[in-house]
Structures are given as structure tokens and as C-alpha cells.
Computed example of a mutant assay.
Amino acid sequence: MFRKLHRWFSLPLCLFVVLVLLSGVALQVEETIGIFEGGEESSPVASQTAPPVERLTDAEIRTMVGEALSKSKEQQPDFRATRIELDITPGREFTRLAVQPRGGPYVTVDRASGETDANMNPAVPMHVWFIRLHTGTLAGPLGILIMLVTSLALMFLAVSGLVLYYQMWANRKNRGRRKLFWH
């Protein structure tokens, strides 16, 4: 029974495995290239060697977020942020109100100059596109559901594959062939 289920589940899932594999490889290649090119954001080494950032007080953070919310409402009254990003690096301090998924519309408020930049139709970077493909969000809620079901099915395949292997190994052991691997 496991063998039949294992085969029926595995054939249609091959497409999704290849999709997740290729998008994951693309993300890793991009991350690796970023590290070798000295990209600060993608390199864990760069974040460890960066100078310490001056810690903001809770009141200053509330002020930054409050200013960003009020300015974004002035600029885009219908904008509904689902994510807040704070960059407190000296000389680069800004607050970005954005929507999910990454790469979507955003409003950025520069703390030093007070300038507001609203981008309601940003170009989606390749990195964000690969993340959306990898997680299934590229196809919306249905894509997320498909990736969830696919993940559960892959776990079933892993477990059923181990059960099948154990059954074959036990059968071979009973016939006097005790090797763990065979050809």
C-alpha cells in the first residue's frame, strides 16, 4: 500500500520540487554573489564588523513611527501599511511603511530632511520575485495553499520512503542478505 501511495504522490510533486529547488538555488546564488561582492545587507560578516549603532529611546522610535504615519496619510490617504521598517543608521535614518509581500507599495519618510517618498507601483526586484516564487505567494493564497499541501506531501514521501526501505531491508535480512545497501 505504501508503495502505491508513494508513487502516486511523488509523480505530480516532481514539478513543485523542481520549482522550489530552482528558486532556492537562485536565492542562494544571489546571496553568495552579494557576499563576495561585499554587499552589506546580505553578508552576515558585514553586520558583525559594522560600527555599533547609537540606540534610540522608545520615545524617539514612537516619534519616528508617528511622523511616518502622519506624513504617509498626507501623501497617500488610502495607503494601508502592514509593515514598518526603521533604519536608525546615523546619517541614513528613515522610516518606511510598506505592505506585504516585500517589494510592494511603500512610503518612506527621511528623518533628517523630513522628505516623503511614496512609491505605489515599485518595480519588483528579482530577489523578491524569487522569494514569492519559492514561498508560493506569487500565485496568491492559492499558491500558498499549494505549497503547504506540497510540503506536507513531501513529508509523507520522506516517511513512506523510509518505511518502504526498511521493509525491503527486513525482507533481504530474512533471506540472509544482511547488507544495509545493495545494488
Rank of each mutant, 00 (worst) to 15 (best):
A123D: 13
E85L: 11
R96W: 09
S10G: 14
E30P: 08
S43D: 01
T89W: 05
L22N: 01
G39E: 10
T108L: 14
D87L: 08
F79M: 05
S113R: 08
K173Y: 07
C14S: 10
Y106L: 01
L180E: 02
R7Q: 10
E54G: 15
L97W: 01
N121A: 15
P141E: 10
A112S: 10
G143I: 07
Q28V: 03
D87K: 10
H134W: 06
Q167N: 06
A46Q: 08
I35H: 09
A26I: 00
Q48S: 05
R111V: 15
Y106T: 00
M1E: 10
E115W: 07
Q100H: 15
V25L: 14
L22G: 02
P77G: 04
A81E: 13
P77Q: 04
R62H: 06
L15A: 12
S151L: 14
G24S: 09
L133K: 02
V128Y: 12
G143R: 10
G140P: 05
K4C: 04
L69M: 04
F94Q: 14
V124T: 13
T49E: 06
Q48A: 06
H6Q: 03
L154I: 13
R111E: 13
L5P: 03
A123G: 11
F9Y: 04
A98L: 11
W182P: 00
S72I: 01
R102N: 10
H6S: 01
A112N: 08
I144M: 10
A158H: 05
L180P: 03
V20K: 05
E93M: 13
T135E: 10
G140C: 08
S70W: 03
L27V: 08
V124P: 00
D87R: 13
S113P: 03
L154G: 08
P105V: 05
E30T: 14
M64C: 04
C14D: 03
M64R: 14
S43N: 12
K173R: 14
P105Y: 02
R175Y: 02
S72C: 15
R3W: 12
H183A: 12
Y165H: 07
A26K: 00
H127C: 01
L145M: 10
C14P: 02
L154E: 04
